[in-house]
Design a protein around this nucleic acid. Structure first.
Lengths: 192, 192
DNA sequence: TCGTTCATACAGACTGGTTGGTATGTAGCG
DNA sequence: CGCTACATACCAACCAGTCTGTATGAACGA
């Protein structure tokens, strides 16, 4: 589904790759749509597990956690190269306007990521009062949108370096929110 | 295709909506894929026409042109609301990894937008030397990725306000590149 | 220990509707 | 006459989903 999209992926193909038959498929899944939802959920859980090593790190400040999150995302881009694709973004793009169930599921998975990041941003605001205020949710949605867009464009251009470069700029944007000027600029030296 | 994706949109459906028959369809298009490519090209041309009113404005500086471009994009988000979708992003997402022709076409359309924006950024750098240097192409790709991602996420959340808010933050990011601090902050007062 | 029961996990054949694409014909027009 | 723009009829392949059957194994009573 990540390679071909939802509609172009047939149940027969899935069964062949799984080494099972259609009878078995429809024993486990009520419909093809149900599998799509399950695939999204499984992918999201997998991803959240990876992200969690960043934001669940003990004895680490919220700003550092955000940087570690960007590290994880950069690693993903490096490891998966031209095949870096998000199941949630993929199925949402294809089905959001024609399938309300999938749309809501995608929205939910997105909210989970954004909720965690917004929490870190709010905590970071408390510890490092920024010069100009900002809305944690708005910034988190912005970061998520850029992340999704980067994977989409990076896939189309077959250029994972661009995704990493975009993440570098996200880092700069984030730092800019907390370090308006002059402050400890090299606190998080050239990562990613 | 923007509502359902490429694969889920049948030639019969297209013919019905166009008020024509299949015989006629395959007289004008060699295949369904050819229509997809044509749809992408038509959409890109339409979009570039809208963007052009920003970057082809006479007697206007490059930075102002960039801001007008963001104005155009905000207007698009406002006007199209929950249906704001890019044909290029849509078909690229679905087909980039399984259809090389569509992938290259999508890449080409993306490059056209990015090329124009990178040109403006380079010109702006000449006129308003930024405190820290940046790569025009990298920033342009970042902006485009965020634009694509915002449309994707905004569609999934059914929340066009988020797209507009993201564009606001893109504006701030852009300004931050040229106005490190203290300078004429309200040169482009609360637009978007 | 053994037979019975029953639910689960799977296989495989089948179907009715659909799909992209083709073959053929024709109306209109310069 | 010949070319373009369309229509009609048709097809073979395919698709999601169904139906029916079977192997396995746990639970249980005697």
């Amino acid at each position: 589904m990540m390679r071909q999209g939802f509609a172009a992926t047939t149940v027969d193909q899935i069964c062949a790759e799984a080494g099972l038959t259609k009878g078995s498929f429809f024993h486990h899944f009520e419909s093809k749509e149900a599998l799509g939802l399950a695939a999204m959920a499984a992918f999201a859980e997998l991803g959240m597990g990876l992200y969690a090593v960043a934001w669940d790190a003990p004895d680490v400040g919220p700003l550092e956690k955000l940087h570690r999150l960007l590290d994880v995302m950069s690693d993903l881009a490096r490891q998966h190269g031209e095949l870096l694709t998000c199941m949630v973004g993929m199925l949402s793009q294809e089905l959001a306007l024609s399938n309300a169930t999938v749309r809501q599921a995608g929205e939910g998975h997105m909210e989970a990521w954004v909720g965690a990041v917004a929490g870190l941003l709010t905590e970071a605001k408390r510890l490092h009062p920024p010069r100009v205020g900002f809305d944690s949710d708005a910034v988190a949605w912005m970061l998520y949108s850029t992340w999704q867009g980067s994977m989409l464009v990076g896939k189309t251009r077959q250029r994972p370096e661009m995704v990493i470069e975009n993440l570098r700029q996200m880092r700069a944007y984030l730092d800019g929110l907390f370090e308006p000027l002059g402050k400890s600029k090299s606190k998080h030296p050239k990562r990613a």
